[in-house]
């Protein structure tokens, strides 16, 4: 079995895995990082979104062996100690979740959106940015609100360039 080594949330992690092991399985089953959820396992819902080398990807649609040497951030890697990440805080503050199943993917997608746009995206941009994330509970309104607030907290309120 091939050995893969990645930096996950700042810590080096390695394991011998079958090539067919998905990144989501590597994180959940091998590293016990179960904050990354698997909703559909068919590339639709976005519950499994993590950041790989700075980009948001669906971890159920990529193999662990593709990411030997890569740097991965999961929902567990956002907070610093007891201090929630501003995007997590905004989801709590604005009631951006109900059951919470989609939330890890939503938050990872939201942080990626802010990183890409470099400021507070407008509502249309936020809604388009959520095309790969499905929520069965909230109706999205409060998620959109939370992302706007989280983006403002992350960037000091700077408007995005586009």
């Amino acid at each position: 079995m091939p050995k893969v080594t990645m930096t996950v949330n700042g810590t080096s992690a390695s394991a011998d895995v079958e090539p067919r092991t998905l990144l989501s399985q590597f994180l959940r089953d091998h590293l016990r990082l179960t904050g990354t959820h698997v909703g559909c396992d068919t590339s639709q819902c976005g519950a499994c979104v993590v950041h790989v080398d700075g980009r948001a990807v669906k971890s159920c649609t990529t193999l662990a062996v593709q990411w030997n040497g890569a740097s991965v951030t999961t929902i567990e890697g956002l907070a610093s100690g007891d201090q929630l990440h501003p995007m997590q805080e905004a989801f709590r503050e604005h009631h951006g979740l109900q059951c919470g199943f989609c939330t890890p993917g939503m938050i990872m997608a939201a942080v990626d959106m802010v990183n890409r746009h470099g400021g507070v995206p407008d509502e249309k941009t936020i809604r388009e940015g959520l095309e790969g994330n499905i929520c069965r509970c909230t109706g999205y309104h409060n998620i959109v609100k939370a992302i706007g607030a989280g983006a403002a907290a992350m960037t000091g309120g700077k408007q995005a360039a586009e």
Binding site: G46, A56, V57, K58, T62, A109, E131
Partner: peptide, 9 residues
């Protein structure tokens, strides 16, 4: 095309 996560890959 698709969504941001699909476009990243």
């Amino acid at each position: 095309i698709g969504d941001p996560h699909v476009r990243a890959m």
